[in-house]
Write a protein that binds this DNA or RNA. Structure first.
Lengths: 191, 191
DNA sequence: GTGTTTTATTAAACTAGTTTATTTTTTTCG
DNA sequence: CGAAAAAAATAAACTAGTTTAATAAAACAC
């Protein structure tokens, strides 16, 4: 039998109460537990009606590929975070891929909408995502790449450790070459 | 008696039905009709518990001021659009200001949360805002300033016409000097 | 209307970040 | 383990966008 305990505790946390057995069954019936290998693609630009992913373990990245073929990492998601394209069920412009071997609980848009009406705190999530993206947007617009790197290092050192440098540079909106320069410069400063 | 008809028709549209008189009264009781003059500040970074604004007529901008004192326009709002800081009631990092003389219907966060449970389509709004910001983010990260200017010109020519150039440049994340160059270059190309 | 302030243009020197290419280091995997 | 592949570092030439400053044009105020 698959283990849904992390998902239960998530709903217990947001609902601020214990779940009944019926509620647990309901959750099991709408979520699908899935595992993706490192570098495995979960959805592609052009796909319709993509699912929402609550991550049990591992690390995902959502990215675009621009006209010239370059990738831009928009968001990462790790343990106990949601990731997905909120424009679903419309055709997505993004790719979702596992950076590490990752297990998730996935849910369709329609089921998501319906459990949202039961667990209204879920909509707080979308709002929180918005606030996060807004901050990130402002930071990238108004700060230098070096400052943004520092900030990421402070806010989520674990992420910096788990990601290859070229994924971080793409998240910060610079080339891997430039991030490498930044890091070299910082190392020089330190001693 | 103040005219709330635009607000009624907004709620009728999202609810997809006519409003009863009681509902209209309820709306009047939670919204406050306000007018702001050109360049008038509506809220400031540091303010707590800012309100949400549904714009009847006019044009607002929400912006930050960075460490070095430079302004960055994050969002504009015009007729029949919502604008506000979704991180409310937490302390805001943004400034909200009228670009033109503007009349709005404003609502507190707490009232907003409570009418949201009645008009659940309101939460779609937040989601739509998120999608909008995400697109804008990706565009600014992956495209040149010239392409972003073109795109704005296509998506919202009216906005370009109503805003002074230095507000547009700040929205696109470049200096007024550089936007001026882009425009000069485009004019040269055309003939 | 005309004088004053604000906004936009132009130019020139500069810098943050890119591109391409080569070398070194680290990771993967049979 | 050792070979091959992937990731990171370094260098050099380049470019998109900035800064500062001076001029021109437009908008505003009386």
């Amino acid at each position: 039998m698959e283990d849904f305990s992390l998902l239960y505790s998530y709903f217990e946390k947001i609902g601020n109460r214990e779940l009944t057995d019926t509620e647990k069954e309901e959750i099991v019936s709408v979520f699908r537990k899935e595992t993706f290998n490192k570098k495995q693609r979960i959805f592609n630009a052009g796909d319709e009606n993509t699912r929402h992913y609550y991550i049990e373990k591992g690390l995902l990245r959502m990215y675009i590929i621009d006209q010239s073929g370059k990738e831009f990492n928009l968001l990462f998601g790790k343990e106990r975070q949601w990731l997905g394209d909120l424009s679903t069920p419309a055709t997505t412009s993004y790719y979702l891929e596992a950076v590490e071997k990752t297990t998730v609980f996935s849910i369709s848009e329609s089921a998501f909408a319906s459990i949202m009406s039961k667990y209204t705190e879920l909509s707080t999530n979308i709002r929180r995502s918005y606030i996060f993206l807004q901050k990130r947007f402002v930071a990238i617009l108004s700060k230098t790449a070096e400052e943004n790197y520092e900030e990421l290092l402070n806010n989520d050192p674990d992420l910096v450790q788990r990601l290859p440098q070229y994924h971080i540079s793409s998240y910060l909106g610079v080339t891997p070459v430039f991030l490498s320069k930044i890091i070299a410069k910082r190392a020089r400063k330190k001693d």
